[in-house]
């Protein structure tokens, strides 16, 4: 068996198992930790696919910034586990059936249909997707979207502060 295939299947198994761990764990903190592991595995996939810059961005932005924000909010609210309720008992079985149908459809289209897809070449020209290549592509062809991203992040920052700010008139709704 090809070494690339072995790497793919081991990493894929880790990615799927950590995603399932995120889904099935009752405690939100453990779910977040499983998701960090999943993001790290996907970052290794990016490295295998020859995208080192994206892999590092994945680690710093997703596993670093976003998941720390998640863990911070989980612990701030003290809402690791919810009380059990009986509402909508039919929801989980029907959701599982629909998700299986979705996965089945996707697999049918991928493997039964003819998408005209090829294999990924093992060799690739050196310098492809190096940080400097990404930078020149980003600032030459995608400069306006890049600037809009800056405005979007500013708007999100202001919005988050405004939404989460304590309202002076409803001071009673304090965190405990």
């Amino acid at each position: 068996m090809d070494a690339n295939l072995i790497v793919f299947f081991v990493l894929g198994a880790v990615a799927v198992l950590t995603a399932l761990g995120m889904l099935l764990n009752k405690n939100a903190v453990y779910s977040a930790l499983f998701l960090i592991m999943n993001f790290a595995t996907v970052a290794v996939f990016y490295l295998v696919l020859g995208a080192p810059f994206i892999a590092m961005t994945q680690i710093t932005v997703y596993a670093g910034a976003i998941m720390v924000l998640f863990l911070f909010v989980i612990m701030l609210l003290g809402a690791e586990e919810l009380k059990k309720t009986k509402r909508l008992s039919w929801q989980a079985p029907s959701a599982i059936i629909l998700a299986l149908v979705l996965a089945g459809e996707a697999f049918f289209v991928i493997f039964a249909g003819d998408l005209g897809l090829t294999e990924i070449a093992t060799q690739i020209e050196s310098g492809f997707a190096s940080p400097s290549a990404i930078g020149s592509e980003l600032f030459r062809n995608y400069f306006l979207p890049f600037q809009i991203t800056a405005v979007l992040l500013l708007a999100a920052m202001v919005g988050a502060i405004v939404i989460a700010r304590r309202n002076k008139r409803t001071r009673g709704g304090d965190l405990k």
């Binding site: 894929g12 799927v16 697999f107 990924i120």
Partner: peptide
């Protein structure tokens, strides 16, 4: 040489989860 279909399948599984 990894068929791209494997990556699409993995992505579909993660998306379904």
């Amino acid at each position: 040489m990894i068929p791209i279909a494997y990556y699409i399948a993995l992505s579909a599984i993660l998306f379904t989860i």
